[in-house]
């Protein structure tokens, strides 16, 4: 098993969703492959970070902040004559108004931290994926191109098809995530 296949299976492996045979292959690959091990560690760290966050309890004032303006009609009554025209002014007014109700998120650092972690994890995901993709591409790149070339060589009259099938078939194994076929047969 190579980067390409192991990389696709890492997430399922971490979640123990793989059949025993594939899980064992991934485990063996991780022992041999530093790049996949690093990718695995990064994924596990991100998962652990997210799992370690405190449960998202709504602030005690939330219900009051919603209920009171509704019940008293204060939010609707407070705005009409002084409603700002621009978007920035509206946002400022809204935050000022909510602040008066003592529900401004900066007063809950746990929430801010959680949001930052989630944003960072989401931002890092393409980076990690890009690195893994790049590793996969470098591993299958030559075989992918040799495969396409071998298939196209069929257009050259009288090139042996059985040989082209052998080359294309070997490349397909690598593209599917298997290790390249070792030099076999009888050698001189």
């Amino acid at each position: 098993m190579n980067h390409h296949r192991a990389g696709r299976l890492l997430s399922a492996y971490m979640d123990a969703e793989l059949p025993a045979k594939e899980a064992r292959e991934v485990q063996e690959h991780l022992l041999d492959c530093e790049a996949c091990r690093e990718a695995h560690d990064r994924l596990r760290a991100t998962r652990d970070l997210l799992a370690g966050l405190p449960p998202a309890e709504p602030p005690a004032e939330l219900w009051a902040a919603i209920r009171q303006p509704v019940l008293r009609g204060r939010l609707a009554a407070a705005v009409p004559d002084v409603r700002p025209q621009g978007l920035v002014e509206r946002l400022r007014a809204a935050s000022w108004s909510l602040g008066r109700e003592r529900w401004f998120p900066v007063r809950r650092p746990g929430w801010v931290f959680a949001a930052v972690v989630v944003v960072l994890a989401l931002a890092a995901l393409p980076l990690v994926k890009g690195t893994v993709d790049r590793l996969h591409a470098s591993e299958i790149g030559v075989d992918l191109y040799v495969h396409d070339h071998a298939v196209q060589m069929g257009a050259a009259p009288l090139v042996d098809r059985a040989y082209l099938g052998l080359v294309a078939g070997d490349a397909e194994l690598v593209m599917a995530g298997e290790n390249p076929r070792a030099a076999g047969g009888r050698t001189r």
């Binding site: 071998a150 298939v151 069929g154 098809r161 082209l164 294309a168 078939g169 397909e172 599917a176």
Partner: peptide, 11 residues
């Protein structure tokens, strides 16, 4: 089973 293009396209 791999499904692929033909290796017999004579061009």
């Amino acid at each position: 089973l791999f499904e692929d293009r033909s290796i017999q396209d004579t061009g």
